[in-house]
Amino acid sequence: MSTPFEIESFDEYLNTIHKELRANGENKRRLYFRGQSKRATEGYPLTPSIARYKHLARLSLADLEQQECEVLETFSNHLLTYVQHRPQTAWEELAIAQHHGLPTRFMDWTTNPLVALYFAVRNTGGRTNDSAVYVLISNPKRYADLKRGQAPLVKPVGDGVTEPANAHDDDAYGEFGIEEGYSSTVSALDATSATGAAEISADIGPLELPTPFKITEDIIYDPPHVSPRIRAQDGVLLACWQPVRPLDENDYLEIVIKLSAHEDIRRRLDQYGVFDKQLFPDLDGIAKWLKYRAFEINGAI
């Protein structure tokens, strides 16, 4: 993949975001960013966490869907013991599972380019590699717009039990720490069984959205009622319809953050308030911030 941007300073990064990207018309739609301490070309492809388990790539779409549904069903059976908010859809259930570390087909992104930059440079001390911020340029549909009927409808997959794993390879894609039928918490928005045995009608309306396991394109999901961290990080989730495959290179733009710039960028982000105690509004965030200020840079507290 060609790399149009290589960043060597904090100001250069800001200029890239505000001038280069905006000048090319990206301001006409929402932008989503993902910061990674390793580049996609260096063994860290843009995939959801479930893709890290290589044996899953050998499963058909139907078998993978069934396994994901069974895992989520077990998780959901325990969910109401620990949360105050009752999930209304399987999308919410899966977002909560993602937040608590369960591998899912959701991938974390943010609408804040400084948050993405933070994740790209925060934990790179002692490393010898550049990091990167990725910009999603494929303009996926938003779950909220679909629900309100303000976006073209998503055609759901058919019978997941009989569908071959490569059924959609021809049109897999055109282009950056959160369903149906699993548990009693699944709402009327879900339209199929956990095994996918029931085929969904092609005429899906704004209140009858496919579950995350029945979509045929990537969808941006803004998870409600999940975590203060997600709100602090302006986080969104990308639901990947082919979760064991990396995003196509045409889906994103790579902004390489040179290793030589990391330390200065970390200091500048701290000055701008984009650091641990702001992005992790809990004791973990306070501890990380104190670790950085007192021990890593011997700064003022």
Rank of each mutant, 00 (worst) to 15 (best):
R30I: 03
R29C: 11
Y53P: 00
A40W: 09
T47G: 01
L56T: 09
Q36V: 09
L21E: 04
Y32I: 03
E42C: 07
A23I: 14
S49P: 03
K38I: 09
K38R: 15
L46H: 03
H18M: 10
K38H: 14
F33D: 13
R22D: 12
L31M: 15
T41W: 00
R39E: 13
R39Q: 14
L31N: 08
K54I: 02
S37H: 08
R30V: 06
L31E: 05
H55W: 09
P48C: 08
A40F: 10
Y44V: 02
Y44Q: 10
R29Q: 10
K19C: 04
R52K: 14
H18L: 14
Y53A: 10
E20S: 14
Y32H: 10
N27T: 14
Y44W: 05
G25I: 04
K38G: 04
E20Q: 13
K54S: 15
S49Y: 02
Y32S: 07
A40R: 09
Y53R: 13
K28C: 05
T41C: 08
E26V: 12
T47R: 12
L31D: 02
L21F: 15
E42D: 15
L21D: 10
G43W: 05
F33A: 13
R52Y: 08
I50L: 15
T47A: 09
A51C: 08
G35C: 03
G25N: 04
P45R: 08
Y44G: 04
E42V: 02
E26K: 00
K38P: 00
P48R: 03
K19G: 06
R52H: 12
H55Q: 03
L21A: 05
P48L: 10
R30Y: 07
T41I: 01
A40D: 10
A40L: 01
H18G: 12
Y32P: 00
R22G: 01
Y53E: 12
K28T: 06
K38D: 01
R22V: 14
G25E: 05
R22P: 00
N27W: 11
R52V: 02
A40Y: 11
G35F: 00
E26Y: 15
Q36W: 01
Y53T: 09
G25W: 05
L46P: 02
S37G: 12
K19D: 09
K19E: 13
L56S: 05
L31T: 13
E42H: 12
G35V: 00
N24M: 07
L46F: 05
A51H: 04
Y32L: 09
T47P: 06
N27Y: 10
F33T: 11
L46E: 02
L56C: 00
P48N: 03
L46G: 01
N24W: 01
E20W: 13
E42R: 14
P48H: 10
T47Q: 15
Q36P: 02
L46Y: 05
Q36L: 08
E20V: 01
P48S: 08
A23V: 12
Y44H: 11
N24D: 10
R22T: 12
N27D: 07
N24C: 09
L31H: 02
S49M: 10
G25V: 03
G43V: 01
R39Y: 02
T47I: 11
R29H: 13
A40V: 11
A23Q: 06
T41L: 03
N27R: 09
T41A: 13
L56F: 15
I50W: 01
G43N: 03
P48M: 11
N27K: 07
N24I: 03
H55T: 04
P45M: 11
